[in-house]
């Protein structure tokens, strides 16, 4: 493993499972020190054990401003700065138009849009010149899916943040890019309000729509995040990188 992130201090929200955890593992293997956040202490503890070294877990909800303030106070105290942010925490739930409740809307927008925005904004004082910010969007940013309009709208917002923030942060030479995973089964899929069987059915129904004829793995997404976090992508800025087996193209 090459040490592409040697000496870098990174934050991964939602780093306790799935894509966030896989990325935390790759970051640490690549030489970084990683802060991970998540809402559940037991799953954070398990993640820390799995990552093994150079990791601090801080429990918190990105949609909660007090939690974010506490997070950055801790990072400032322990490391003093941040070189990389992977704003990964997100929520997904199905609701077709006609059945969208205010509660559903608030929950998804609060985590995916408000939470992500303030994750980045509140980190600004700690970010170094030339830092790299990676936002986790989704192919839903450009694709329609039944009963997924609110989630998709949040992901279009995230993609748009990446475009605009490149300009807001240009004087500090901070790069901002978005990644858009396709179908990547993770523990998060079980949190969509679906049974295990329903998740399995959903994944199977999607596989036939993927040109590479298979779903992705969290580690494949993690590799893309390492690319965008490292100097390998030093002239890549404001893009949306699809890691989707070609799904966004059809």
């Amino acid at each position: 493993m090459t040490i592409k992130l040697a000496g870098k201090i990174a934050l991964i929200t939602g780093g306790n499972s799935g894509i966030g955890l896989a990325t935390a593992q790759r970051f640490v293997e690549s030489g970084a020190y990683v802060f991970i956040t998540g809402r559940r202490q037991d799953s954070l503890d398990a993640a820390v054990e799995k990552i093994g070294k150079n990791v601090t877990a801080i429990r918190g909800d990105v949609s909660n401003m007090t939690d974010l303030d506490r997070l950055y106070a801790t990072i400032e105290q322990e490391q003093g700065h941040l070189d990389v942010i992977f704003a990964n925490a997100g929520s997904v739930e199905f609701a077709p138009l006609g059945s969208i409740t205010e509660k559903h809307f608030d929950k998804i927008f609060n985590t995916n849009v408000k939470g992500l925005l303030f994750t980045v904004q509140k980190a600004l004082p700690l970010l170094t010149e030339g830092a790299s910010i990676i936002l986790n969007a989704s192919i839903s940013s450009i694709k329609g899916a039944q009963a997924l309009s609110v989630y998709s709208a949040t992901k279009a917002a995230v993609r748009s943040f990446a475009r605009n923030w490149t300009l807001d942060l240009k004087e500090r030479k901070i790069r901002v890019n978005a990644i858009s995973p396709g179908i990547v089964p993770t523990p998060g899929y079980n949190l969509m309000g679906l049974s295990e069987e329903q998740v399995q059915k959903f994944v199977e129904s999607q596989t036939s729509k993927i040109p590479l004829e298979r779903v992705g793995t969290p580690d494949e997404i993690a590799k893309a995040v390492v690319f965008l976090a490292s100097d390998d992508s030093s002239f890549v800025n404001g893009i949306e990188l699809f890691i989707d087996g070609g799904m966004a193209q059809i």
């Binding site: 590799k223 390998d232 989707d244």
Partner: peptide, 28 residues
Amino acid sequence: EVASAAFFLATCGYVTGQIIEVDGGWTA
């Protein structure tokens, strides 16, 4: 810097159909 992007595309097995801009943010 373009070579690094090409290297990523050559080695990340779940990326296909991607047009990766290496432009410093020009198109964004």
